[in-house]
Design a protein around this nucleic acid. Structure first.
Lengths: 190, 190
DNA sequence: AAGCTATATGTCAAGAGTGACATAAGAGAA
DNA sequence: TTCTCTTATGTCACTCTTGACATATAGCTT
């Protein structure tokens, strides 16, 4: 079982979905801690079904093409539950922006300030979205999001991580943009 | 040019290194924002040399095997400088721990508390290491780390990002571990 | 002499992930 | 009619990444 498989099971444990729906979820709410295109999802669903972790049924639709709706099995639920508390392998987080910062000493100050100020704005926008979603959850599922055995609780926990992540990124980008502002470019030979 | 290529150039812009040295750096100081094993590094160095971004010279050693020391070229330096201020493609950060948190509502509370408390400790240890390194830099290269055109400045900027990242992770892990503590397991059928 | 560790450089097969290509139904606009 | 958009499912080739295999020098230990 791959991590992508568990990402899919995590969504299917909440509600039955088609491959297309799963693709949308991966772009949306789950998108800030995992990602996958449909070209990865369809083959993975086939593998999950082969392993007995999900089953599907075809739903005929009138005004749209038919779809396959996938449902998690008991076996899938059991595997997901076990996986959820196993320590993840530690891999280095790959952050291309930090990698760029690592070479910022070579760059022109105005250009670097532009980059980090733009990225800072992007992260602030994302942060605002997450905070809006958090506030919405606090209003709409006030009690439910505190019940540990409710999927809402898990969603809000993940969301909290996203908020912390974006906040850190936004702060850092703003700081760095400010710091490199006015740094002169190393003069070439005119 | 791949991102790994620029990661290597970022290191070679500071000092000339062998493939083996680069592998050590990737595990160490650069490890928190990019990673690669030697099986990726050696072929990438060959590609970089083919493209004229680096050159190498063989250094004979007495008490060790000979080594190839790679040096960045003007062309490599130029490419790195340009890349450093280009906006990175936005890809979803893949965080397996947050993905696990997303399914924590299914898990046994004690086991989940164990996982997140362990991970929290790991992040705190990493944070402590980074802070130690930051303090060391403040002492040893007090002025230099503030000069924008110095590699020390870029290193300390990246380090600052690492500290923010680990702080966020540690806080979140601790919070979640505390929250799921005492959550009873869903009873199986006895 | 045999084995272990650190240094040093490589290859290869398998798996994960990306982007393009391909198809198809129905809705709505030009 | 044709074209485009959204929904819907799939494949394929390519790249990136990982882990194992492979080799070699030299010091140190057993």
């Amino acid at each position: 079982m791959t991590t992508l498989g568990f990402a899919i099971l995590g969504l299917l444990a909440r509600e039955s979905l088609s491959g297309y729906d799963l693709t949308q979820r991966m772009k949306g709410r789950v998108g800030f801690f995992w990602g996958a295109g449909h070209s990865q999802i369809y083959p993975e669903l086939a593998r999950l079904e082969e392993g007995g972790f999900v089953t599907h049924s075809v739903v005929e639709q009138r005004e749209r093409p038919d779809k396959k709706v996938f449902e998690i099995t008991e076996r899938g639920l059991g595997a997901l539950k076990e996986w959820a508390t196993e320590p993840p392998p530690r891999k280095p987080p790959k952050d291309e922006l930090t990698l760029k910062a690592y070479s910022v000493w070579l760059a022109d100050g105005a250009e670097a300030a532009g980059l980090f100020s733009n990225e800072g704005r992007r992260h602030e926008e994302q942060l605002a979205q997450y905070e809006e979603r958090r506030d919405w959850m606090e209003r709409e599922c006030a009690d439910d999001r505190l019940r540990l055995e409710s999927p809402r609780f898990a969603s809000s926990a993940a969301l909290r991580r996203g908020i912390l992540y974006e906040r850190g990124n936004a702060e850092w980008c703003r700081w760095l943009a400010g710091a490199v502002e006015g740094k002169p470019e190393k003069a070439g030979k005119p």
